[in-house]
Design a protein around this nucleic acid. Structure first.
Lengths: 370, 370
DNA sequence: TTGTATGCGTTATCAA
DNA sequence: TTGATAACGCATACAA
């Protein structure tokens, strides 16, 4: 069942009609433009029919004489012809466009994935439409609409999890959807991300082995985001298994700095004098955490050890380096996009859930203590 | 005159024809898809003509009775209709797509600009096609082609400067082009970026005032990139003006780490015992620089002061913070995109060259020395 | 190996 | 206030 949104004006997603004045100007400008060259012009110049040119364009060389082929090629170059993807798409029901919806484009994780995804697209002759939602379900919804309007052939999404109805509708249509980092089992989509279970266990074990007795885990709100939940759960499980209470799991809202400060104060006073460590659930949290600790004058690792997920480029530079679990972000982007093309090429196998192993990178922020 | 590329196969930029096998599968899959709903379906459901629905879609409410309007709205929602932008674009010669070509999407500068650009696009009902060139002119060229094929309505580009012919052709057609960070006066395009002159002077002055006697400037290769050239020139000019030889301007290739190490060794031994500072020409160079200094065991600011451009999120966290000149990156993205829409709406004034002032942010890496 | 004719979904023109 | 129809540029079925 698709949720309805009453306040919904459909043309919010369409270009508004320009004022009459602008409109006229627009027309005038457009008249001035160099005559658009179409397949007909090429056909004329090459002395063949449109059909023949079309065959050339789609690489059906086996059906073309060498002479025709060279003449068409020459005509195309001479006229500076560019096939109109709008027309091709309309006719063939393919836009050669892939949508990518990310929660936060300024997060290095997202750009690294984007880079991998883009490389695959390029190889396949597709292009990426990139949308940034700021984790806002309303924005996400609007972007899904827009992308649908553009008839994207596939969608890579780092979803807020609040628009499952719309995503399902997309998929019903024809469009492969791949979830990045965040699972939604009920949607039955392919999913790509870190093996949070393994990565977290490994990190927690390492820290315990280094001799730390109290570990805090700081994460953004868990609600609705599977990767956060998986990491937090693995953290709690590992501690519990070893008989250590997993009390120090803190959810913080990064938009209100006090939130972090509060939790931090609590943990630091509570563990005064203990061998203690803090794990940040991702690169952004880690940045805020280190910033907060510096503000307080807390020494890393003297007063508290620190480790985190993602391996931002600056991790080696802070103090004697921050211990992290790195994700193969580029590879995640590549694999996600490959899933899309597999689906596009007819793969109808059940949804895959692809996990990549994280890699523990030990640096100075988590020295052994006795 | 447009340069020709002989090895040029046009369908490199088109989706290759799938094998016959894949093709059949594709067809079969497509048949399975939920019947696409078109404007005709909506018209039928609402009991009006396509024309009337089209009027509704483009917001020409003044030409619609209230009754018709509500019926159409209901039909659209009920059928889950999405206007086909491919068809709209083909008909109206507008794709509602803006291209954005960046040299390096993993550079935080690029994503910040992207974010600004995207916000404006969204407001206007446009979407962004994002392309990453890795500073490779060939890739850039291919992307320009692809974007042209998709009939983008505008282009934001951080150009390699090697494809001026192609860019000019784009502009000849009809498409507003705005250059970000890198100028190409001969192209006559609108240009947005930092006021490199002011920003650099301010930084250099500050460092000299702090008492440093020798200043090195480390930049990526200057050739063809105006922003690098402007900063380097301002650096040299400021020193010269004060009677200090500007010998220590180093161009390094970030792809070969030895390149940086070498220059660094040279400068550090040459200035042994002096009050000295190093300026990094952008955020990426700064990262590599700090990394190299740490590797050498050189203390910041004990052995050498450090400052740089861009203000990456990690700048406050390294040691007692790195002094930088921040750029209003988000604002740059917004302004660039606004230029595009102004042009689209008929502005035919001469090309504008918009400079934003940089903001010096003083931190611990450049303490006063006597 | 090549060409003719039709239609993809939409908007614009013209008429009512 | 509404509708019939043509056209946008291309790919395909079918014919030759």
């Amino acid at each position: 069942m698709i949720k309805r949104y009453d306040i919904f004006e459909w043309n919010r997603f369409l270009k508004p009609v320009p004022s009459m004045n602008e409109y006229r100007k627009g027309i005038m400008m457009r008249k001035k433009q160099t005559e658009k060259v179409t397949i007909t012009d090429v056909a004329k110049a090459a002395g063949v029919s449109k059909t023949t040119v079309s065959r050339y364009l789609s690489g059906q060389y086996h059906a073309l004489s060498d002479r025709t082929r060279t003449r068409i090629k020459a005509a195309i170059e001479q006229l500076n012809y560019r096939p109109n993807q709008l027309a091709r798409g309309l006719k063939g029901d393919r836009s050669y466009l892939i949508g990518m919806i990310v929660a936060d484009i300024t997060n290095p994780y997202s750009t690294a994935v984007l880079r991998g995804a883009e490389d695959v697209c390029k190889r396949k002759g597709y292009s990426l439409m990139v949308c940034n939602t700021d984790n806002d379900p309303a924005k996400e919804r609007e972007y899904i609409f827009t992308l649908q309007s553009h008839r994207i052939d596939g969608l890579l999404i780092n979803t807020t999890g609040q628009n499952n109805g719309f995503l399902r509708e997309l998929a019903n249509d024809r469009t492969p959807v791949v979830l990045v980092d965040r699972k939604m089992p009920e949607l039955g989509f392919d999913t790509i991300g870190l093996d949070n279970e393994q990565a977290t266990s490994e990190l927690v074990h390492f820290i315990l082995n280094q001799g730390y007795k109290r570990i805090a885990y700081i994460t953004e709100p868990l609600a609705g985001v599977s990767s956060r939940q998986e990491r937090a759960a693995a953290f709690a499980r590992e501690l519990t298994r070893l008989g250590i209470p997993a009390d120090d799991l803190y959810e913080v809202d990064l938009h209100s700095p006090e939130s972090l400060m509060e939790k931090l104060d609590h943990f630091l006073t509570d563990t005064e004098g203990d061998k203690r460590a803090i794990i940040a659930a991702n690169g952004v949290v880690m940045l805020k955490l280190i910033s907060a600790l510096q503000l307080k004058g807390v020494q890393i690792p003297g007063d508290v050890a620190v480790a985190g997920f993602d391996d931002p480029e600056w991790a080696p530079l802070i103090g004697s380096g921050i211990t992290t679990v790195a994700q193969p972000t580029y590879q995640i982007g590549v694999t996600a996009m490959e899933r899309i093309f597999n689906r596009l090429e007819g793969d109808t196998s059940p949804a895959q859930n692809i996990h990549f192993a994280g890699k523990l990178i030990v640096r100075g922020s988590t020295p052994a203590v006795d």
